[in-house]
Design a protein around this nucleic acid. Sequence first.
DNA 1: CAAGATATGTCAACATGACTGACATAAATT
DNA 2: AATTTATGTCAGTCATGTTGACATATCTTG
Lengths: 183, 183
Amino acid sequence: MTDINFSRGATTSDSQGAEGVPAPRSGEMRWDIIELLFFAYRDFVGDADHELEAFGFGRAHHRVMHFVYRYPGLKVADLLDVLRITKQSLGRVLKQLLDEGYIVQKTGNNDRRQRLLYATPKGEALVGKLAGLQTDRITSALRDINPEGVAVISQFLRAMIDRDDPDKVLEAIFGTGSKKPRE
Amino acid sequence: MTDINFSRGATTSDSQGAEGVPAPRSGEMRWDIIELLFFAYRDFVGDADHELEAFGFGRAHHRVMHFVYRYPGLKVADLLDVLRITKQSLGRVLKQLLDEGYIVQKTGNNDRRQRLLYATPKGEALVGKLAGLQTDRITSALRDINPEGVAVISQFLRAMIDRDDPDKVLEAIFGTGSKKPRE
DNA sequence: CAAGATATGTCAACATGACTGACATAAATT
DNA sequence: AATTTATGTCAGTCATGTTGACATATCTTG
């Protein structure tokens, strides 16, 4: 049936592109890691996507719930930095989660303009269910990997992340800035 | 300014959810890997996203171009399997790439119903530019990791991917089925 | 050969989650 | 008192996904 040509790209030419742009230097590319990341992430988020349908939620709701649960008291502005979306876009999703009782807001103590976000028990349950699915996949993938190997994987993933202009959550993860995450 | 509570979740309660659903068993979760994957992938695809704007394309175009370039002669049906989208959705993106000369179709030799897809030099140049950005990030992230470490990372990513019902590209990557990728 | 299955393409309607721009309110800062 | 900041909201648009229906060419099968 299906007959892919396995010659791994660049069959047509490895010379010049249409506008004099050089064609990809295939040999130098990390096609392996690029594609593994694509498929690994596709299936990784796929776990949660399926479960979210039952709640009438999408990926956007998951991301918001996750970070609100993990970093209690997160401000709206912090969430915008982490998710890298606009407040209008966040607004809709956040409103739903508030209305349906997955998240509550508390006015900031020092700055009463701030709306600090917290997961309700209902929200915690949702996050836990989704994180459980993803943890199962991760645990399974790490089954035959020793602690040193896990450290290498962690090192690699950290090194893949932009370190310029880190948001508050990234500072927590990396332990930069003045504050340090209590590990 | 911003003051995240770093108590890493589950402050409100670790008991029962609203509907008797247990709250997440925080200690058992791989929050570290879950969040590292989120940020690593966000920045990984961010490289390409930025460049794609100059072409008036989006992520969807990138994914199509990538797999067409990498697996020359890919059928439309194979692409649908890999991307896990509908043909209507693929149709729009593919039509643009065909119209603008990034991809060409050739009628299948054995089965003349098939439209085998190939990247043009123009398409190759685009894929190469995007893969170059992503390769730079990967190479940088792997800088201090020895070959054994890279093998562990590869093993982990492979183990994160669903192996039931693999599409043609995954078969090529994993070397399952009768055909083996020439590595 | 006729009938059915397959590969692809297309029309129409719709949903989600992004976006920009403009504006409003309350509270903090200067 | 004036300005800035944090948040919320209205209105419109875009990209990318969806379902359902249908058309066309071609291959396969009885």
